[in-house]
């Protein structure tokens, strides 16, 4: 009888929610690679091996300048890692990738070897959203992978609800938007209407390479190359798709909830 079964099963399995952020983060899959690190000092003088292999043209190197890798356009395919002869671009295995400013995602300059992680929201917004953030998810032309990995944050293993973060049905109930997809032209109006329907103050989170800069579809006339073209974005979470841990880390970093009640993480 399923009633007994389910109760016994639940008792046997106990609590299946992970300890993170109170405990350690779960390990990324070993072949995942995590984030990227660009040490332009190691680059050979005129080498642009990485520039020509990048599928989204995320890497540029003007002559005489340091190489610049835009993590916002990056699909994390690691072609550049394999192509680089000098190991200037390496994988860090770190899941933390979320940034507040678009510029913070461009790696390569001095002091910008890795992504500058997101700072928390200002005090006022932290006060409003820190313990209760209601987000309206807008799928603006995405391939459904970012949506799936956002959805999985609501399941019992991750349990986003314990941070007071919840996805709501109407933008009128929401504190902010979470946008995935490169914002196809056909979804532009819907995104604008949704943004306008969210009451002030509001935040916008762009998840995935598509939402930041158009992803694999960058430059297509049918897309707007990311949410930034239409609405102001407060948090960028790179990846294709970003691992749920990366998304969660970004959200918690934004609300200053890493490391439990005391805050900093």
């Amino acid at each position: 009888m399923f009633i007994h079964d389910t109760i016994l099963n639940r008792l046997k399995r106990g609590c299946e929610t992970m300890d993170y952020p109170a405990g350690d983060a779960p390990a990324l899959p070993d072949r995942h690679g995590g984030g990227l690190r660009v040490e332009s000092a190691r680059c050979a003088a005129d080498c642009s091996a990485c520039v020509s292999v990048c599928p989204t043209e995320a890497i540029t190197r003007a002559s005489g300048q340091a190489v610049a890798l835009d993590l916002g356009r990056c699909l994390f395919c690691a072609e550049c890692v394999r192509a680089c002869p000098d190991r200037a671009i390496t994988q860090t295995g770190d899941h933390r990738l979320a940034a507040r400013l678009r510029e913070d995602l461009v790696l390569g300059g001095t002091g910008k070897e890795q992504v500058r992680l997101a700072a928390a929201l200002n005090e006022r917004l932290r006060g409003l959203f820190g313990r209760s953030l209601k987000l309206r998810q807008v799928s603006a032309g995405g391939c459904n992978a970012c949506e799936a990995d956002t959805n999985v944050l609501g399941t019992i293993g991750w349990d986003l609800g314990r941070f007071g973060i919840q996805f709501v049905a109407s933008p009128r109930h929401a504190d902010g938007l979470l946008i995935t997809g490169p914002v196809s032209k056909n979804m532009a109006l819907a995104l604008q209407k949704t943004y306008a329907a969210v009451p002030d103050p509001k935040i916008v989170i762009a998840v995935g390479a598509c939402a930041i800069a158009g992803g694999p579809f960058v430059g297509h006339s049918q897309v707007s190359d990311g949410a930034g073209a239409l609405v102001p974005v407060d948090l960028f979470v790179p990846g294709c798709p970003p691992h749920p841990l990366t998304i969660l880390d970004g959200l918690l970093r934004l609300l200053d909830r890493l490391g439990g009640p005391s805050g900093k993480g």
Binding site: R172, M187, A190, L191, T194, A197, P199
Partner: peptide
């Protein structure tokens, strides 16, 4: 207070 149209799922 801001007045806005009824939420219509992003329709026309």
């Amino acid at each position: 207070t801001v007045r806005g149209p009824t939420w219509d799922c992003g329709l026309q």
